[in-house]
Design a protein around this nucleic acid. Structure first.
Length: 242
DNA sequence: GCCAACGTTGGC
DNA sequence: GCCAACGTTGGC
């Protein structure tokens, strides 16, 4: 089963403006216990990588509540260059996002449990970096915001869709999506190479990007950032290209 | 295009 | 429940 990271180019959002917090999440929690388990922690072998450290951070920041952490910032990967997946082009660049009605799109096609759970944790108004991946110049190009919280990803039921999941039931959909809206371009392109250089430096000196999931959870397409991580990365847009 | 990283699957 | 084989992600 594919679990492509990014959304793909498809039409506008199904509904209109109204930022309905109501539709959010409903039927999950009940039956996907195992999945939540599986995905809510690092894989068995991977001792103390990203998740744990990040969780630790959040806990200490927020007064340490084990299960009630609220995440506030995100990074969303999307592929700006054409690539066929089951005959369908999954390209979706920031320009494609800006071309959508309302500059808004549903973030469909996520087929990884950990990424899905992060999608489900997103709240209206939260900001995310729009990251270009699998391309010539990987890096952050824009800021987007969540305008609709998690609801069932319709592409899981569409046999023609490259992300069709025959094991998902309508009564209990496995996969979710959110709607995101373009906010603004970053003042300059922030390349992965630059973020990584800071990450490496911070591993040595304990700086904010020390545990950034872009590097500790390499393949995760939807990832949370701490306030400190978000602020630090954003501060890079003010600097001279490195 | 190569290939390291890593999530998933299935045999046992 | 272990773990090798496999498939995908995504930087380079």
């Amino acid at each position: 089963m594919p679990w492509p990271s990014r959304k793909r180019d498809k039409g506008a959002v199904a509904d209109k403006k109204e930022p309905d917090a109501k539709i959010a999440k409903t039927e999950e929690e009940t039956s996907d216990k195992e999945e939540e388990e599986k995905s809510a922690k690092p894989p068995a072998g991977s001792s103390k990588s990203g998740w744990k450290n990040w969780k630790k951070t959040k806990e200490s920041e927020s007064g340490g509540e084990e299960s009630k952490i609220t995440y506030c910032h995100w990074l969303l990967k999307s592929e700006p260059e054409s690539r066929l997946e089951k005959g369908v082009d999954v390209k979706f660049s920031v320009d494609d996002l800006k071309a959508q009605p309302n500059q808004t799109t549903c973030w469909d096609g996520v087929r990884n449990y950990q990424a899905r759970n992060f999608l489900r944790a997103m709240k209206i108004g939260q900001q995310a970096f729009f990251y270009h991946s699998n391309c010539k110049e990987p890096g952050i190009v824009a800021i987007v915001k969540i305008v609709k919280e998690a609801y069932p990803d319709h592409t899981q039921f569409d046999q023609k869709d490259p992300h069709y999941d025959s094991t998902s039931r309508k009564e209990n959909p496995k996969w979710s999506m959110v709607d995101v809206q373009f906010v603004r371009m970053t003042k300059r392109f922030i390349p992965l190479s630059e973020i990584k250089a800071h990450h490496l430096a911070h591993k040595a000196d304990g700086g904010p990007l020390k545990d950034m999931m872009l590097f500790t959870r390499q393949r995760l397409s939807i990832q949370p950032l701490t306030q400190e991580q978000f602020d630090f990365v954003l501060s890079l847009e003010e600097e001279k290209p490195h």
